[in-house]
């Protein structure tokens, strides 16, 4: 039995563009989006400074000077002025970035791992498992996230670890919900049915066919949560439930400088500016990622 491919059964079709992998395509689209690129650059610079702060030759963020208190922006030796205890603002903002970014990112990463797992299970298994997981999630949704964080932190007591825990708990429900809805929609697609029809087990299907297609959207959503998380953690510090003085942290700095707002408003506003810029960049970047990851265009 021989089989010759005749011209009619051969798909001699358009020589399409050279193969581009999925992530290469995402990167190509992202590269044409100046807003996302600028945001990514700012965030990378912030993270770089935060990590390498001790080696970048900044002033000591803990040493103050009673004579050099609340100096305005542009003071020689203190480019961004000083705070109410005469500590260099630039150094404190940079060092503050370490804690703030850590507190903003870690809970989201933890919630991403836990929420994605829960959402995958709920969305893929469906039925009563879904109902159970999602109804519990709904209970958490009844509380505004800020209040929930304050309540949990208040119950656990002040401190960095406790605010990490409370923030993680706050962000598990929204991530679970997004993961569940994305998984449920992917699960309905024919390629999952085709995989089932080829005899693959549920674990294999989730790992090979589902995971890769749901992680992207969940990741983008989690990116946008990072800014919320930073703001709430700043809020916790502001209320005295998070980081304790004299640690530099943007929310805490905002709190302690609050009294100086009439004396030197620009310096007092700086930590707020940092929170604002960082969360704005995170939000814009997640928007950019979302559109870059849209395959069908």
């Amino acid at each position: 039995m021989t089989y010759t491919a005749t011209s009619t059964s051969t798909a001699l079709e358009v020589p399409a563009a050279p193969t581009v992998g999925y992530w290469a395509g995402v990167w190509r689209r992202l590269r044409r989006d100046p807003v996302s690129l600028i945001c990514a650059a700012i965030l990378l610079a912030l993270i770089f400074c935060a990590i390498f702060a001790p080696w970048l030759g900044f002033a000591d963020p803990y040493t103050g000077s009673m004579i050099a208190r609340l100096k305005p922006i542009g003071t020689p030796g203190h480019i961004l002025g000083t705070d109410e205890l005469g500590r260099d603002m630039l150094a404190r903002l940079i060092y503050g970035g370490r804690l703030t970014l850590f507190l903003g990112i870690t809970p989201v990463v933890a919630a991403f791992v836990i929420g994605t797992s829960l959402g995958l299970i709920a969305g893929y298994v469906g039925g009563w498992v879904n109902s159970m997981i999602m109804r519990v999630t709904d209970i958490f949704f009844a509380f505004p996230s800020v209040l929930l964080a304050i309540a949990i932190s208040g119950a656990l007591g002040a401190g960095v670890v406790n605010s990490l825990v409370s923030l993680t708990i706050v962000f598990i429900p929204p991530i679970t919900r997004v993961a569940e809805s994305v998984t449920a929609s992917v699960r309905k697609l024919d390629y999952v049915d085709a995989a089932r029809a080829s005899g693959a087990g549920n674990f294999t299907i989730v790992r090979v066919q589902v995971l890769g297609n749901v992680l992207g959207p969940i990741f983008v959503y989690a990116t946008s949560l990072t800014s919320v998380c930073m703001i709430i953690s700043a809020g916790l510090s502001f209320l005295g439930l998070g980081v304790k003085p004299p640690e530099p942290e943007w929310g805490l700095m905002l709190n302690t400088l609050r009294t100086a707002i009439y004396i030197n408003p620009w310096v007092a506003a700086l930590p707020g500016m940092m929170i604002f810029i960082t969360s704005l960049c995170l939000n814009l970047l997640s928007d950019g990622l979302r559109s870059a990851m849209n395959v069908r265009q």
Binding site: T8, A11, L12, E13, V14
Partner: peptide, 12 residues
Amino acid sequence: ARLDAIPGAPPT
């Protein structure tokens, strides 16, 4: 019967 299919696809 074998169909007289138009080979290929339209241009992009």
